[in-house]
Design a protein around this nucleic acid. Structure first.
Lengths: 197, 197
DNA sequence: GGCTAATATTAACACTGTTAACTTGCCGAT
DNA sequence: ATCGGCAAGTTAACAGTGTTAATATTAGCC
C-alpha cells in the first residue's frame, strides 16, 4: 500500500522533503514558480499538509534562508580553522561566499530577496545572519583593532563589495562568463584586503 | 480631428495614470501588493482596461524600469555638463545614483528585481540601461584610456561597489541611519575614484 | 433617430495562499 | 467482534492574482 509506505516516512523526512522540493523548483523555475500546491504534488500530498510543517509560505522561506546562513557560517568556521593569517582568512571567506552564491543561487536569492524571491520576515533580525557577520567582524578586528563603529563600517564596505559583485555577476551571467567575473571578484577582494593594513 | 487629439490626450493621461498608480502602491505597500485590479480601481476603471495600455503586467514593470534608467541617464548627462574633471564627474554621478535610489526606492527595486519586484524581461538587454552604462564607461575611459576589457572591468567594479552599498544600506535602514550609510558610501566612492589614477 | 465603431464592463479560467469541514483508516476498550 | 475516538489526509471553499472572451454601453456620423 502506498499509504503505508507514506506513513513509514517519518515527520522529519517529510519536512526536509518540503524544503528540498521548494529549493528544487526554485532552482529550476525561479522562486516565483514555487507554490504550496506544487510542493505538495511533488511530495505526493495535498496542499494543507504543508501547513502541518510550516505555518506559512513565509516561514518556509525563512527556514531556507536561515539554513543558508548556517551553511555559510559553517564554511566560515572551517576556513577559520584552516588558516591563521587574517588576510588569508578574509580572502578565503570572501571566495567562500562567492562559491556559495554560485553553487546555491536559489538560496542566495531567498537570503536577500533577489529575483522574485520574497520573504517578508526581516533578514536583519535573524540570529543566524548575526552569527555570520560576527565572524567577519571578528576577523576585521583581529588585524585592525579599532572601535566598534570602525569595524561596522569596514564590515559594511566588505559586504557591499562582495554582495554587489555577486549580484551583478549573476545578472550579467549571459553577457560575461562567470569565470571572468570571479577573476574580477578575487582581484577586488584582494585589493580590499591589502588596503586594510 | 480635434476630437482625435483630445482622445489622444486622454489616452496619454490614463496611461501615465496607470504608471503613476503602480509606483504609488509599490512605494506604500511594496511591489508584491501591486495588482492590476488595484491599479484599475485607483484610476476608476475595470481591470481589462489596463490591458489596452500594457500587454501584460511584465510590460508595465518594464516601462517603469526603463523610465528609471532614462531618469538616471538624464541626471548623468546633467552632471557631465556641469563638471569637466573626470574624477568629479564620476563622484557626482555616483552620488546621483545613491540619491536616485533613496528618492525612488520603488523604481530602483523594479530596475534590479529587488524586494519582491519581479519583471521577467531581461534588464541587460534594455537599451536604456546600455545608454546609462555607456556614460560611465566613457568617463572611466576619459581618464584611463585602456582597452575595452579593462574599462568593462572597471565599470563592473564601480557598479558593484555602488549597487552593493545601496542595496545593503536599504536593507540595514532600520539598524543604521541612511545618513551614516551615505557617509560610508561617499568615502568608498572617493577612495575608488582616487584609486583610478 | 438609427447604424456603426469605439469603449468599457462582466464573467470566466486557471492559478495563488490559506483555512474549515469532512472522510478515512487504525488502535485500544468493551 | 464491535464500537468509540483519534489522528492523518483529503476535499471544498474563500479571497485574491494575471489574463481573456463575450457582452454591454456609449459616442459620433449620416
Amino acid at each position: 500500500m502506498e499509504i503505508l509506505e507514506r506513513k513509514q516516512r517519518s515527520r522529519e523526512q517529510t519536512r526536509t522533503g518540503i524544503v528540498l522540493t521548494a529549493k528544487e523548483i526554485a532552482r529550476r523555475e525561479g522562486w516565483q514558480a514555487v507554490s504550496i500546491r506544487k510542493i505538495a504534488d511533488a511530495i505526493d500530498y495535498s496542499a494543507p499538509i504543508v501547513y502541518e510543517y510550516f505555518d506559512s509560505k513565509d516561514v518556509l522561506l525563512d527556514e531556507i534562508r536561515n539554513e543558508g546562513f548556517r551553511h555559510l557560517r559553517q564554511e566560515y568556521e572551517r576556513i577559520r580553522h584552516v588558516y591563521r593569517d587574517p588576510e588569508k582568512r578574509l580572502f578565503e571567506m570572501s571566495v567562500g561566499q562567492w562559491q556559495f552564491a554560485i553553487d546555491h543561487p536559489e538560496i542566495y536569492q531567498v537570503m536577500y530577496n533577489l529575483d522574485g524571491a520574497y520573504c517578508t520576515l526581516p533578514v536583519c533580525e535573524s540570529s543566524e545572519m548575526e552569527a555570520v557577520s560576527a565572524i567577519i567582524r571578528e576577523i576585521l578586528f583581529s588585524f585592525i583593532p579599532k572601535s566598534k563603529e570602525s569595524i561596522q563600517k569596514l564590515y559594511f564596505e566588505w559586504w557591499s563589495l562582495s554582495h554587489g559583485m555577486i549580484t551583478l555577476a549573476m545578472m550579467l551571467r549571459d553577457h560575461q562568463p562567470l569565470e571572468q567575473s570571479e577573476q574580477v571578484y578575487r582581484e577586488s577582494i584582494r585589493r580590499f584586503v591589502r588596503g586594510l593594513r
